[in-house]
């Protein structure tokens, strides 16, 4: 059974996404901050990580966490999907698209914009599962 780790500071997002994933036979674990992230991921050993970008303590904590995960030999194989409310298509000056994904800047496997429809979320996860 695929284990998905949701790292998001919003309990409602965790709950609503967990409902969808658990109903589709995924195991879900969650973490609400990026403190001691590496040991937490090592201990849970998830198959996929859903990672928020903006956390209360740092607006770019998600990016930093993604880079940190990519640097770990034991964790870099785990696909990370960015899950954020910062719209990638709104030309806000600080927005980003999947074209920005790179090993240096944004070492992740994909981008999911919040709110996410169940079908879109499941398709994205399935495609990441297939790729990996």
């Amino acid at each position: 059974m695929t284990k998905i780790m949701i790292i998001d500071d919003d309990q409602d997002i965790i709950d609503s996404i967990s409902m969808i994933l658990e109903a589709n036979d995924y195991t879900v674990v969650a973490k609400m901050d990026t403190d001691d992230l590496i040991p937490a991921i090592e201990s849970e050993n998830p198959n996929i990580i859903l990672l928020d970008i903006v956390f209360p303590e740092d607006a770019q904590a998600g990016f930093k966490a993604a880079r940190e995960i990519a640097l770990q030999e034991t964790l870099k194989h785990i696909p990370v999907l960015i899950l954020s409310a910062v719209n990638q298509l709104n030309n806000l000056g600080f927005s980003f698209t999947e074209n920005d994904i790179s090993q240096d800047f944004m070492p992740v496997s994909g981008f999911i914009e919040k709110p996410v429809e169940p079908d879109v979320l499941l398709d994205k996860i399935k495609s990441v599962e297939e790729t990996n």
Partner: peptide, 8 residues
């Protein structure tokens, strides 16, 4: 986004 997610 959280409200919308619940609605979805």
């Amino acid at each position: 986004a959280a409200i919308k997610n619940y609605i979805y």
